[in-house]
Write a protein that binds this DNA or RNA. Structure first.
Length: 281
DNA sequence: AATACTAGCAACCGCAATGAG
DNA sequence: TCTCATTGCGGTTGCTAGTAT
């Protein structure tokens, strides 16, 4: 059917996002919630298509994102899930809180594939490479031919349907929830304290892996239900940059407390507040 | 120091799925 | 049931930083 292209409208910007655009999008989404992506750019004053905004938010600006390399544990999870699900990156990502499908896909293509081949495993089939049929020098950028497993067992597919990513969705009438989410962003950093196993977190990172990888960003997916005895690092949010962002400090930090976060939010905070500070000033 | 090559990742493209009217 | 708008997903591209020559 004749679908109108999303991003070829005259005057719409493409390519890398600027700090100012990020700021506009973040400000808008934090104050208005996430709904009707098509309307977002107009309302937020952005010359982007809604799709681009959604992608930017989902893959980069979303506050519950974990940045940095995947831990060994996460990598193992990805491999296991890939064996079951194939290239269903969104399903795989749903089992790894704080990770995006794009990130996992990229990591798979750039790291894990290579690693598996070195181990003599065909990344497509997860079976031992056939010596004759599997020359070592396969091009890394395959043209999508590595997705032999598009048939997903029903049981497996069903597990993916309740994705954490879907639970992250919210609408304007859920804005308080979003604010609560922001208020509740407390990530565990004490590796001695076993992180409570949120069922939505699946088999993601082990608490003992490292302080950074242990902090599942389940804040969003779990609706912010954290155990009281966690001992988060607490970092004071400088107020100035928030004003520069045009954000209400109370909204971001909650009325009385500073944001509490660990590395999941380091990137977000850094990008949102400090790296772009001058650009936004 | 300059150039070529490579790896990593952000972003785009287009199709599929879904939902509303 | 059909059409169309919208969103989601997976594949792919292209830019950039890092490394090798």
């Amino acid at each position: 059917m004749g679908r109108q292209p999303c991003c070829d409208k005259v005057g719409l910007k493409k390519g890398p996002w600027t700090a100012e655009e990020d700021q506009k999008l973040v400000s808008f989404l934090l104050s208005n919630g996430q709904c009707c992506w098509r309307a977002v750019p107009k309302l937020a004053g952005l010359l982007r298509c809604g799709k681009s905004c959604r992608l930017r938010w989902t893959n980069y600006l979303r506050p519950d994102l974990k940045r940095g390399l995947l831990s060994d544990e996460e990598e193992k999870t990805v491999i296991d899930l890939h064996e079951q699900l194939g290239n269903r990156w969104s399903k795989i990502a749903a089992q790894l809180p704080g990770r995006t499908d794009n990130e996992i896909k990229n990591h798979w293509n750039t790291h894990i594939k290579k690693k598996l081949r070195k181990m003599g495993i065909d990344p497509a089939t997860h079976k031992p490479l056939q010596p004759a049929a599997a020359p070592l020098q396969q091009p890394l950028r395959s043209t999508g031919g590595d997705s032999p497993e598009q048939k997903v067992p029903a049981a497996v597919a069903a597990t993916g349907s309740q994705s954490g990513a879907e639970e992250h969705m919210f609408c304007p009438d859920e804005v308080p929830t979003m604010m609560q989410l922001l208020d509740n962003i407390i990530l565990p950093c004490d590796v001695d304290e076993p992180a409570p196993l949120d069922s939505s977190c699946g088999t993601a990172s082990s608490p003992a892996e490292s302080s950074s990888s242990s902090s599942s960003a389940s804040a969003a997916s779990s609706g912010g239900g954290f155990e009281d005895d966690w001992l988060p690092k607490i970092m004071e949010w400088p107020v100035e940059p928030m004003f520069m962002m045009g954000l209400d400090v109370d909204v971001v930090t909650g009325p009385t407390s500073a944001w509490e976060f660990e590395d999941t939010f380091n990137a977000y905070q850094r990008i949102a507040l400090f790296d772009h500070q001058e650009a936004w000033a």
